[in-house]
């Protein structure tokens, strides 16, 4: 599985990033290098989860406005700054779903879908593909999120844990359970 290099940074890079955060706390203009580093990743995370591109731009802007407004509260816990941004993005996304400003969407590429399906069945027919998509739609939100991040976005369990607020092991266990649930739903008779 590919490793997300923006997340798995060296100790040196994390240290350098903390210096940028400290400067941004003093003057919001110094937030620019952090913005340049992460705005695209945050946008793509949001874009995959909403149906309209305009909503994705709006939500991403809100994420950074909120991050700049509350950067004073940010504490270094030895994890990348991006995890904190993803958490804000997650909460902004759910706020927009609650306000009905955006619709919960799952964006999947058919190659990855086939890879997930190969775990379930050797028959990757159109019918089974539709069945899998239907099963995904029946998952609980928390389970869908784990499947989405692990299999379609190829995130590590450590990164998933940081975003959803779980330990690495707990993220692993819950993702495995979500996959089992998906399998159950896939084989369930209608």
């Amino acid at each position: 599985m590919a490793v997300n290099m923006a997340y798995h940074q060296s100790a040196f890079r994390l240290d350098e990033e903390m210096k940028l955060v400290e400067r941004a706390k003093e003057d919001p203009r110094y937030f620019a290098p952090l913005y340049e580093r992460y705005h695209e990743a945050i946008f793509r995370y949001v874009f995959k989860r909403v149906d309209e591109i305009e909503n994705a731009y709006d939500i991403t802007s809100c994420v950074f406005i909120k991050a700049m407004g509350s950067i004073q509260k940010y504490e270094n816990r030895g994890v990348p700054f991006s995890s904190w941004l993803f958490r804000i993005a997650k909460s902004e996304l759910y706020q927009s779903f609650r306000d009905k400003k955006a619709r919960r969407t799952v964006s999947i590429d058919s190659v990855t879908l086939k890879q997930v399906m190969d775990d379930f069945t050797d028959d990757s027919s159109e019918e089974n593909r539709a069945k899998l998509l239907k099963a995904m739609g029946k998952l609980k939100e928390a389970q869908l999120q784990l499947i989405e991040m692990r299999f379609f976005e190829k995130r590590s369990f450590r990164e998933i844990g940081e975003i959803v607020g779980l330990s690495e092991n707990n993220a692993k266990v819950k993702t495995f359970r979500a996959l089992l649930k998906l399998k159950d739903l896939f084989y369930q008779k209608e």
Binding site: P28, R29, F31, A32, Y35, E36, H39, E40, F43, R44, F47, D51, I53, Y57, T60, S61, F64, I65, M68, G69, R103, R104, T105, V106, S107, I108, D109, S110, L113, L133, M136, G137, L144
Partner: peptide, 29 residues
């Protein structure tokens, strides 16, 4: 109800950069 989109076209890095400049975010903040 969840909407599932297959093989959706994503904007390029350049399109995202043009649309989301730091100055407007700074102004908003």
């Amino acid at each position: 109800m969840i909407k599932i989109l297959l093989d959706r076209e994503e904007p390029s890095s350049e399109q995202i950069r043009q649309r989301m400049d730091f100055e407007s975010i700074l102004g908003g903040a």
